[in-house]
């Protein structure tokens, strides 16, 4: 085992995911196996290989900075879990 349960829990907090104790166990085992498989990349010497940069080889895509959308607060707020008038209502952020 390369991956510890504590490490899995640390990553879960970074990812903002609550895990049950069962999920912690199963993910530790599964991720360990998957990461073990990925270690095959270390068979390759990539010292002189460039990082992959862009899939489409498109550079400098520029456009005029013009407003094309119209404000439509109601359409955007229609999906809000909680709202107050034209505001999203969210849990308290600053203690």
């Amino acid at each position: 085992m390369k991956l510890s349960r504590e490490e899995v829990q640390r990553v879960a907090v970074l990812a903002r995911l609550r895990l049950t104790p069962e999920e912690q166990s199963s993910l530790t085992e599964e991720l360990d196996r998957i990461l073990g498989y990925m270690d095959k990349l270390n068979q390759l010497d990539t010292t002189d290989v460039d990082l992959f940069s862009h899939t489409a080889n498109i550079t400098n895509t520029l456009r005029e900075d013009q407003v094309t959308n119209r404000p439509n607060a109601d359409a955007l707020l229609a999906n809000a879990p909680d709202r107050d008038g034209t505001f999203f209502k969210v849990p308290k952020i600053i203690e």
Binding site: M38, L41, T46, V49, D50, L51
Partner: peptide
């Protein structure tokens, strides 16, 4: 992991 994979991705391309 991530940077290694991006280098191997260059090799695949």
């Amino acid at each position: 992991y991530y940077l290694k994979a991006q280098r191997v991705r260059t090799l695949i391309r």
